[in-house]
Nucleic acid binder design. Sequence first.
DNA 1: GGCGCCGAATATGTATACATTGCCGTGTAT
DNA 2: ATACACGGCAATGTATACATATTCGGCGCC
Lengths: 243, 243
Amino acid sequence: MPETKGSTHTKRATYELRHRIIEGKIAGGTRLFEVALAEELAISRTPVREAMSRLAEEGLLERASGGGFMVRSFTYQDVIDAIELRGVLEGTAARLAAEQGADPDDLRHINMIVDEIDHCFGAIDTPADFDRYSELNAAFHDALARLCGSAIILRELERVKSLPFASPSAFVLGRSQNAAAHRGLVIAQMQHRALVEAIRQREGSRAEAVAREHARIARENLETSQREEKTVSNLPGMSLVID
Amino acid sequence: MPETKGSTHTKRATYELRHRIIEGKIAGGTRLFEVALAEELAISRTPVREAMSRLAEEGLLERASGGGFMVRSFTYQDVIDAIELRGVLEGTAARLAAEQGADPDDLRHINMIVDEIDHCFGAIDTPADFDRYSELNAAFHDALARLCGSAIILRELERVKSLPFASPSAFVLGRSQNAAAHRGLVIAQMQHRALVEAIRQREGSRAEAVAREHARIARENLETSQREEKTVSNLPGMSLVID
DNA sequence: GGCGCCGAATATGTATACATTGCCGTGTAT
DNA sequence: ATACACGGCAATGTATACATATTCGGCGCC
């Protein structure tokens, strides 16, 4: 087996399989066979089954009728829906945080992240630091999911975000680093501030609306990508889209 | 092993375990040991692991640190959040159905269910048919989840509803069959009609709001139950609540 | 007396042999 | 020619032996 991190065969197999699926090395809809994979990874069937079971929990695989697993495949509409769903769930997290009053420490923390994101933008007309933006953006959305203190909301949000194309940072790096992309980031950052401010002011309805609108940026970026380039293979997880 | 349905040992073990957990025979937080369960069910460890793995996918179990599984446990707040989440997701399904325009056949179908629910109410001051109501109510909520045609939304909604206390019918049978319960059902049915009508009229915002409010009935029923009786054990899945 | 280490007990992790099931192709009979 | 049945193959289902890891108690040292 290629050297991938993890201490047990199960963990390594899980990591390796997940990687291959997200990279697009295994197409959506492909059926996975225990024996073949076990031989390929040079381990026995048991950890392979275990790994597939975990990836099914993650939502990357689905159990096939009559046993076994197949790589889950998505339609273009599924991607749209997953992004919409993320917006709805983040909106709920934001609304609940606003209604219940977020913990001051948590608010300080998320504010710190927003401030740091500002530093990703250089002087006017200089390129932004897309890598750092992507990283901080993920941290922001993680902090947002935790802000209302609900383990239930957090769990479902994590679940949706684990779909590679529904991740908040999915289309940050996917886009070409041009002026339009730069502008998009500026708008997103404005929404970050508005979102935190709405929560602080306990404006639940506004917080929810802003969070939903914020997710729509991802949808627009997706649609732009679709229009500009016929091939979608360089966007994360888009190889799982089959139609 | 007690005779439970299923053709393979895995399926029987899955069914049996799920039953025991929901019935409250295994408390929330309990760690499940493969060997002990295997002996008890008179099968080997392999199908037991497989069953536990599937129940983890369902959300009834969680993987313990350092391997193994434990019965997931919930706080009272988790139950509240799960109900709220169901409302949010059903609201989204309703809104999308309204915005995109639901399939006429689907609309006819859900309308038929609503009409049938009317028959559960007898003449004035006669008891309603709670069993039949519960059944049709579940069918209504299932039809609602499918109405927007999104596999993504459907899947997540099914997931939340699989938590026994977040199911739409969780508190229908749990309540004592008194006049107050009867009144609650009448109100719920009014919301059913309003919901379908909003979707038909393509009033997305109204549809979403009604769906959310509808879920709040479950929350109120829960709070009423908590107030009236100290013990919560007769409500579905409430044995998993530990605080 | 408390902290930490060590080892046994017990748990899960892994490999593998065997059982069972479901599918597909081929054959024959109508 | 079609339909049914038989058989073999290939997949998952299951049991079990063995390997490894984790945990917890006791014992010793600080």
